[in-house]
């Protein structure tokens, strides 16, 4: 018998992402379930953003500590890979916090057609990403791969500031 625990969920939801600490795990959309098993163990199910996300281990440790602080001694953190995380799971609140912290939030991409070959992108993406510093739309991609697995590097042509963009996945 597995029953959802409100307080444990709240405690888990407040834990912040180790690489983007302006976001909670709930904002990021990686917290799948918080349940309590028959023996009282709190079982938290996480999903990684990228397969090799090095922050996963830190998230587990932080979740265990936060739940122990909230009075739950027996905590088990599980990982699930399916369905795969998408940036669409970042909440509106999370998007607002990213922008406030100077990180451009991802566009919403919606579900993709299954089975069709994925088109190759040869030209630089035509996507408009507004500068989180000055709001100008005239920005360019510097590199598709940034300091964390989930960000790209961009530069604003108007205010000349570099910034990170959480790239759509």
């Amino acid at each position: 018998m597995v029953t959802a625990l409100v307080d444990a969920r709240e405690a888990a939801e407040r834990v912040v992402d180790p690489e983007m600490p302006m976001l909670t795990l709930a904002d990021l959309g990686v917290l799948r379930r918080v349940e309590t098993a028959g023996d009282g163990t709190v079982v938290v199910t996480l999903t990684p953003t990228y397969s090799g996300c090095p922050a996963l281990e830190a998230m587990r440790d932080d979740l265990r500590a936060a739940l122990q602080d909230a009075g739950y001694d027996a905590v088990e953190v599980r990982t699930t890979f399916s369905p795969p995380w998408s940036t669409d799971w970042i909440s509106d609140e999370g998007r607002r916090k990213l922008a406030e912290a100077g990180v451009a939030p991802p566009d919403r991409i919606g579900p993709k057609a299954a089975g069709a070959p994925i088109p190759l992108t040869l030209a630089p993406p035509s996507q408009t990403v507004a500068c989180p510093q000055c709001g100008a739309a005239d920005t360019e991609e510097v590199s598709r791969f940034g300091p964390t697995a989930c960000t790209a590097l961009r530069r604003c042509r108007s205010c000349a500031e570099p910034f990170e963009h959480v790239k759509e996945i």
Binding site: P48, Y50, S51, T80, F81, S82, P83, P84, W85, S86, I118, R144, F145, K167, I169
Partner: peptide, 12 residues
């Protein structure tokens, strides 16, 4: 499950 994540990564 691995494939579902890998598709997104490999596209990049």
């Amino acid at each position: 499950a691995v494939a579902g994540k890998a598709v997104k990564e490999l596209t990049y």
